[in-house]
């Protein structure tokens, strides 16, 4: 089953390795990203952060969708990490998942900050609205013990 799907431009780091994998008793962390999968250096650095006893997979978006479809039927607890909203759209178009967690999205050109660690561009906002229309819950939580901040509420302001 897919326990968490998280968008985080730092991919695998302290918040994920230390808190999320433990709180949700994650068996496998899957980094789904077309760039990382072809970058040996990135793969090596991400491998360094692998929490003990947790399996780490790094796969492309297309493979990620197939893998997730497969895992949705099992009892293994999988955490999926992506780093941009375009990939989120591709995934949520294919799979019926209830919720997307927003961890960290840094400031970029023409982005605006919506929460301490979340900045969104106008393109991001379009995708957020699209996902919200599909009925996906978009929630901001850097660490699992924080309260959910709903993107829906932020956009309605």
């Amino acid at each position: 089953m897919i326990s968490v799907i998280r968008i985080d431009d730092r991919l695998l780091h302290g918040q994920v390795a230390l808190l999320w994998t433990q709180t949700y008793s994650i068996h496998t962390v899957v980094i789904v990203n077309d760039k990382v999968v072809n970058d040996e250096f990135l793969k090596m650095t991400l491998g360094l952060a692998k929490p003990i006893g947790v399996e780490l997979k790094i796969i492309s978006v297309a493979d990620g969708i197939a893998y997730m479809r497969e895992q949705m039927e099992t009892t293994r607890r999988v955490m999926v990490i992506i780093n941009n909203l375009l990939d989120a759209k591709r995934i949520f178009d294919e799979l019926d998942l209830p919720s997307l967690n927003f961890g960290n999205l840094r400031e970029r050109a023409d982005s605006a900050r919506y929460a301490p660690a979340i900045s969104l561009t106008s393109e991001d906002i379009e995708i957020c609205k699209y996902l919200l229309d599909k009925g996906v819950e978009l929630e901001i939580r850097r660490t699992p013990d924080e309260s959910k901040t709903l993107i829906k509420k932020l956009l309605n302001k």
């Binding site: 991919l11 250096f41 650095t45 360094l48 952060a49």
Partner: peptide, 8 residues
Amino acid sequence: AFMGPLAG
């Protein structure tokens, strides 16, 4: 690329 894993 390195800062996240190092923090982990």
